[in-house]
């Protein structure tokens, strides 16, 4: 992966180009359009060592490797990581934006139509040019979840993939007063769960933030 110069690439005092995400120069400055920034850190109201991810300059979300899902997503600048770095007894980062989407259900993804809480094991992530792909096991089945910005930058597209077709995909959706959720391949039931037909290796969700109130 290449680190691209920041949108406002500039020469600093000693002539070094400030690169996106370089901590000493600009703590967690939002990245340029079409790029991502991923920091594992202390996030407010999240499990330990959650992720702060920026998808371009105006969209961010936190992924929880303990809970297994997106804690919340926001519109606005990224996060201020200074509280996590500036003192011996560090504090959570500060979200620099308006949260538009939240989750709280543990392991909201299921590889079955029904069933209990799966065993979730976080396995890492891959930085893509304009997205991040989280890897984890659900009851031992490897899952890849790619998260990128919607075309208009006002929401998230989540693409879940497995190597071997599963019986069914489902996702425990929660009421979202400021976002709309859809799944192009799925149907919706009363439990607000999206399902796909048996035999599928992919499942996607689109999370679109509501337009800001005038």
């Amino acid at each position: 992966m290449r680190v691209r110069p920041a949108r406002s690439a500039q020469l600093m005092g000693r002539g070094l180009i400030v690169l996106a995400g370089l901590s000493a120069a600009i703590p967690a400055a939002p990245p340029p359009p079409g790029t991502v920034l991923v920091h594992r850190t202390m996030m407010p109201d999240c499990g330990p060592s959650s992720f702060a991810v920026a998808l371009g300059p105006n969209l961010g979300f936190s992924y929880d490797p303990g809970r297994g899902g997106i804690n919340y997503a926001w519109q606005g600048e990224f996060v201020d990581l200074a509280p996590t770095w500036k003192a011996k007894i560090n504090q959570p980062a500060e979200v620099k934006g308006t949260i538009a989407y939240r989750e709280s259900v543990r392991f909201p993804l299921r590889l079955t139509r029904a069933g209990g809480e799966p065993k979730y094991v976080f396995k890492g992530y891959v930085l893509l040019p304009d997205a991040v792909e989280f890897h984890y096991l659900l009851d031992g089945v490897p899952v890849r979840e790619e998260i990128r910005a919607t075309a208009d930058g006002r929401g998230l597209v989540r693409l879940f993939r497995v190597d071997t077709a599963v019986d069914a995909w489902s996702y425990a959706l929660e009421p979202q007063p400021t976002a709309k959720i859809s799944s192009p391949a799925g149907a919706w039931n009363e439990a607000r769960t999206a399902l796909t037909a048996p035999g599928s290796r992919e499942f996607s969700l689109q999370i679109e933030f509501n337009a800001p109130q005038p």
Binding site: M1, R2, V3, P65, L127
Partner: peptide, 13 residues
């Protein structure tokens, strides 16, 4: 760094 550009893109637990 799996693609040889000198910068890591894979973070494996």
């Amino acid at each position: 760094d799996g693609n040889g550009d000198g910068v890591a893109e894979r973070y494996e637990a």
